[in-house]
């Protein structure tokens, strides 16, 4: 923790929620008409183009979207440094063009997907709550499509039971890699049924635009009922595997970070309580944490009969 006064966010950078919403509506309608026109140019991953998407959000009435300026300056992305302000500071020179995602393992049709190809899927906006294992939360409008659509293309075999995600590892562009806080490259994993769940989003954008580098550009996953670290960023490989894959945080501290890591107020982190959370940028940790981050209706059936305290 260096002594800085955090990333300075001037109040002018923060878009009032109403304006943010109206801008989004504007972009929505503008893009509806211009979709055909933009069809080819919108594939460019680096220009901060507004993405074309349909809305498919399941927020709660109490969920106010977190300001973009906060969600893009307070990040855990250790490849760019362990301080929350490091990713926004250090991710600028990260090159995301060209970018491919290699999909292999227990699949009938392994393939290497160019990032342009991913942008051709029907994109949806999903406003999800993001609950970090550190007991803070945000509400973020992601843009992407269900991972299941991509996995269906490679045809997982009957041996495929887990999905392993591998994050990019470019030492020249990711200063955090020189410091072995975790086993690089960063890996994460899901059970196949979790990966195929419609809420699991292969994510290409947020706040109406392509992902900023510090948020996992150009492609990441978002698994809203699990703690944030399960949602791997800047993905270069997706492997379908038979055995539970080794994952970065679980390997680093298995007693603190389980493979499942479902949001659960009843199971404390050994060093802090998970009962409540701080909805940023609020001062008080007065938000009750919900089982499965409030997505129980959609995902609880995945865990019926499983002791969530034992398999945390």
């Amino acid at each position: 923790m260096t002594y800085t006064f955090g990333p300075k966010i001037s109040s002018s950078e923060i878009t009032p929620h109403e304006i943010y919403l109206s801008r989004r509506h504007f972009m929505g309608s503008a893009l509806a008409t211009g979709a055909a026109l933009a069809a080819s140019s919108a594939l460019s991953a680096t220009s901060p183009v507004a993405l074309s998407f349909s809305q498919n959000a399941i927020p709660k009435p109490s969920d106010t979207v977190t300001d973009r300026a906060l969600a893009t300056t307070y990040n855990n992305f250790y490849e760019f440094g362990t301080s929350k302000s490091d990713p926004a500071r250090n991710a600028g020179k990260f090159t995301i063009k060209p970018w491919t995602v290699e999909i292999g393992g227990e699949v009938a049709k392994p393939k290497i997907v160019g990032i342009e190809e991913l942008f051709k899927f029907d994109l949806e906006e999903r406003i999800y709550r993001l609950r970090c294992v550190e007991a803070w939360s945000m509400v973020i409008p992601w843009i992407g499509f269900p991972l299941s659509k991509l996995l269906a293309q490679v045809e997982p075999t009957s041996k495929a039971r887990y999905v392993k995600f591998t994050t990019a590892s470019k030492p020249d562009e990711m200063p955090g890699l020189s410091y072995r806080v975790l086993d690089w490259p960063y890996t994460e994993g899901l059970r196949l049924d979790e990966a195929m769940h419609p809420l699991t989003l292969l994510t290409l954008g947020m706040y109406g635009e392509v992902l900023p580098n510090q948020n996992g550009a150009p492609v990441r996953i978002v698994v809203p009922w699990k703690y944030g670290f399960k949602s791997a960023k800047s993905i270069v490989r997706i492997d379908l595997v038979t055995d539970e894959p080794k994952t970065a945080w679980n390997s680093a501290a298995p007693n603190e970070y389980g493979f499942n890591s479902n949001v659960n107020p009843a199971v404390d982190h050994p060093r802090w309580s998970q009962k409540r959370e701080r909805r940023l940028p609020g001062f008080f940790a007065n938000h009750d944490t919900e089982l499965f981050n409030g997505y129980g209706e959609q995902v609880a059936s995945l865990y019926s009969g499983i002791d969530l305290a034992k398999f945390y």
Partner: peptide, 27 residues
């Protein structure tokens, strides 16, 4: 500086002002 931030501009302390105050005072 912390008092100023709390009163006039909490986001001076970043997205998680409470945590920043906890860390700065601890430091």
């Amino acid at each position: 500086l912390i008092s100023y931030a709390i009163i006039f501009d909490p986001l001076m302390l970043g997205a998680n002002p409470a945590e920043a105050i906890l860390h700065h005072t601890g430091d």
